[in-house]
């Protein structure tokens, strides 16, 4: 005997989902994704610049002690490196940076306030170990994209900083106790001073 047909489980909620809503949600999700990705460097509660520059004088280089448990300035600070750091502010004009990168493993890197590394040089690629750079605010404007405005900078010792504030970091590898005095002395040669290079 045939049973009366049972009503099928209702799928009435499915047609209720509007295709338009789905499409708009996908597009909005994409916008949320792009916006949040681009915003993160500017939203950080504590950027590397904030952490490092607290307690340091602007436009002055300071040799920091090697990282030790409990006293790391930044995450993943390898104590095999010793750092000299200069937090800079170009609102008052140019900054001259000098450093000596005597051996493999030494490097000099310059970062914006938001952590972008816009200049780096390592000892391995240098013909002579002394480095002198003049850091100046970027003069780039939208017009430069169309070849209008200031001439491009062809002087490799003049570096245009995309942001006015940032960090100069000299990294020195620690080769062991016997070399620590020499490493500290070489790092102490690093300077950053307001104004153009003298001489």
């Amino acid at each position: 005997m045939l049973k009366p047909s049972q009503p099928r489980p209702s799928k009435r909620w499915l047609p209720r989902l509007s295709l338009h809503v789905l499409l708009v949600a996908l597009v909005t999700g994409g916008i949320v994704h792009i916006t949040s990705t681009l915003a993160i460097p500017y939203m950080g509660a504590s950027t590397a610049f904030d952490r490092v520059s607290a307690g340091l004088t602007l436009n002055a280089m300071r040799v920091l002690p090697p990282a030790a448990p409990g006293s790391e300035l930044l995450p993943f600070s390898d104590p095999v490196h010793q750092l000299a750091i200069c937090p800079f502010d170009l609102n008052d004009g140019l900054l001259t940076v000098t450093a000596t990168l005597p051996d493999p493993g030494w490097s000099l890197a310059i970062y914006t306030q938001h952590g972008d590394n816009f200049y780096a040089v390592a000892a391995a690629g240098l013909r002579q170990p002394d480095v002198t750079l003049v850091l100046e605010p970027s003069r780039a404007t939208l017009l430069n994209l169309f070849g209008i405005g200031t001439a491009p900078n062809f002087d490799p010792s003049r570096i245009q900083a995309p942001e006015h504030r940032g960090l100069v970091v000299v990294r020195a590898p620690r080769h062991g106790r016997a070399f620590e005095e020499r490493t500290a002395a070489m790092l102490a040669r690093a300077r950053c001073t307001s104004g153009p290079a003298s001489g």
Binding site: T47, L74, P75, A109, G115, N117, V121, A122, L167
Partner: peptide, 14 residues
């Protein structure tokens, strides 16, 4: 790298 407050050196060097 910004979120983790790291200062990476360019991968061209290190």
């Amino acid at each position: 790298f910004a979120r983790h407050a790291l200062l990476p050196v360019s991968t061209a060097l290190i």
